[in-house]
Every structure is written in structure tokens, then in C-alpha cells.
């Protein structure tokens, strides 16, 4: 589904990703872990199409399609979704209205007609229940006055509404208490099918107790330095990152 080869990216002249490879197939859950500054959020931003980053080399294909030149909204229309580490507050823009616009513009991109009001409202009701989003939050301005947990839940609600093929969760666990974490993780698990995939970017192993990954990758200095199964996360929790990063330091 997602294929990244030798990806190099920089911001303001600083190299962040230094030849990264990643292969994600339908039905899989991948966790990307790594110490602060290793390039985790950059990877999420580059995949989503944030324009501040300069792509220096490599390629990203999504379902066989080169997405490097696509605008962020086109990537979303192709089926990508990024759950933000810090969801943005947008006063005056209603959650529901903007999702309606998003869904209809995505449908337009695919050559489909507008979704009927009835179908849309049905979906809102269903997904709201699925992610246990409080009744009034859906109709409010995007994330305005939401608690940290509500913001993250709103990200998962939007993800549920848009039904992406690939969801990237960027540090979704940061700032969440254990109950909120469980609700968010439950939402993600319920949305999982054999046809979609999830990339979980996280600093801590904690979230992976709830969203069980098929693969765990360790990102360091803009490269994946180790890949393993879910046990690798536990090993990292126990030993930290030093044992993986030391050899790199020696050669540096």
C-alpha cells in the first residue's frame, strides 16, 4: 500500500530524513518508535504533504501511485489520514460542516456525487458512537475549548468519518490519561479492516499495549535502524534506545 524508498528530507537546510525505507501492506499495523529528534514527526509530515519540508531524494508511492507531487488534500482524497500530535483549534469553523466539505470534495476527486444529507448524518451518528465522542463536540468549532483527550478523540472521529486506507497517528498518545488512551485505541482498533493499514508513531510503548503492531521500527537519525515484531517495543521499553544507537555514534 505505502512504499517509501530512500527518502531524504530537510527543513531549513537541516537534513532530517536520511534515506528511509518503509513498506506497509493492507491489513498491517506498523509502529514507528525512536528518541526525540529522530525524525518521527517529520516522516508523518512529509507523507501528509506538509510544504515546509524539502524532499531531497527518494520516492513515496501509495497504492502504486507516486504521491510526491500531490497536494495534501489530494493525498487525503487518495485515502491517507494524519492524526495530528497537536490538533489545531479553528474558531468559527464547525467540525461537522468542515467534514461535510471534506467528504464531498474527496468524493468529487473520485468522480462521485455529493453524499446525501441523510447518509452524512447517519455516518456522523454511527462514528460518534464508535469513538465515544460527546454529543455536543461534533457540532462545535474544530477543537475549540476541547480538552487534550477530546482533541485526540476528535482526530479519531474525523478518521472514522473519512474512512482512510492508511491512517498515520502522530504521537496520538501524548498528553492522554489511561482512560482516554483506551478510548482512542479502541476507536482505532474498531476501524481496522483487512483493507486498511495504520502507522502508529509513538515515543512510548504504552499505546502499543492497546494497538498491537505487526511490525515495530526504530527510527534514529532519519533512518530505520531496526525492525522487529511487537516484542521489540517491550525490549525498547526495558533497555531504552542506547543499545541500538551506540554503533551509529561510534561510526559518526
Amino acid at each position: 500500500m505505502l512504499s517509501i524508498r530512500n527518502l531524504k528530507a530537510s527543513i531549513e537546510g537541516k537534513n532530517i530524513l536520511n534515506g528511509l525505507d518503509l513498506e506497509v501492506k493492507a491489513g498491517e499495523v506498523h509502529a514507528i518508535m525512536g528518541p526525540n529528534g529522530s525524525g518521527k514527526s517529520t516522516l508523518a509530515s512529509v507523507i501528509a504533504g506538509r510544504s515546509e519540508y524539502e524532499i531531497e531524494g527518494g520516492e513515496i508511492t501509495f497504492n502504486g501511485k507516486d504521491i510526491m507531487e500531490l497536494e495534501p488534500e489530494e493525498r487525503a482524497a487518495e485515502g491517507m489520514f494524519l492524526a495530528f500530535q497537536y490538533p489545531i483549534e479553528i474558531p468559527g469553523v464547525s467540525n461537522i460542516n468542515f467534514l461535510k466539505t471534506a467528504i464531498n470534495e474527496i468524493r468529487d476527486y473520485k468522480g462521485l456525487g455529493k453524499m446525501s444529507a441523510k447518509e452524512f448524518l447517519g455516518r456522523v451518528k454511527e462514528k460518534k458512537e464508535m469513538v465515544e465522542l460527546k454529543e455536543n463536540l461534533a457540532n462545535r468549532s474544530v477543537n475549540v475549548g476541547f480538552s487534550g483527550g477530546e482533541k485526540k478523540r476528535n482526530e479519531i472521529f474525523q478518521m472514522a468519518m473519512l474512512e482512510p486506507k492508511l491512517a498515520i497517528l502522530d504521537e496520538t498518545d501524548s498528553g492522554l490519561d489511561i482512560d482516554a488512551l483506551r478510548i482512542v485505541a479502541n476507536g482505532v482498533n474498531r476501524l481496522k479492516t483487512k483493507d486498511n493499514a495504520t502507522i502508529v508513531i509513538t515515543h512510548y510503548q504504552r499505546l502499543l499495549d492497546y494497538i498491537v503492531p505487526d511490525f515495530v521500527h526504530v527510527l534514529y537519525k532519519g533512518k530505520i535502524v531496526k525492525t522487529g515484531g511487537k516484542d521489540l517495543a517491550l525490549e525498547l521499553e526495558e533497555k531504552g534506545y542506547d543499545w541500538l544507537t551506540k554503533p551509529e555514534k561510534e561510526t559518526a
Binding site: 501528509a48 504533504g49 506538509r50 510544504s51 497536494e71 495534501p72 488534500e73 493525498r75 487525503a76 482524497a77 489520514f81 494524519l82 495530528f84 490538533p87 489545531i88 479553528i90 474558531p91 468559527g92 469553523v93 468542515f98 467534514l99 466539505t101 471534506a102 467528504i103 470534495e105 474527496i106 476527486y109 468549532s141 474544530v142 474525523q158 473519512l162
Partner: peptide, 25 residues
Amino acid sequence: DEEAVFYLRSRGVSEVSAKKMMIRA
């Protein structure tokens, strides 16, 4: 707010629609 514009675009809203929404807001 460029961050807000990007946020809306990342959900599939076109740049023009996103900016219009922001101005209206």
C-alpha cells in the same frame, strides 16, 4: 493561520475552500 489551513487540507478540503472557511470563520 497556515497550520489551520494545512489541517483542513490534510482532511481533504481544497486549499481554496480551506481559506474561504477560515475567512468566513
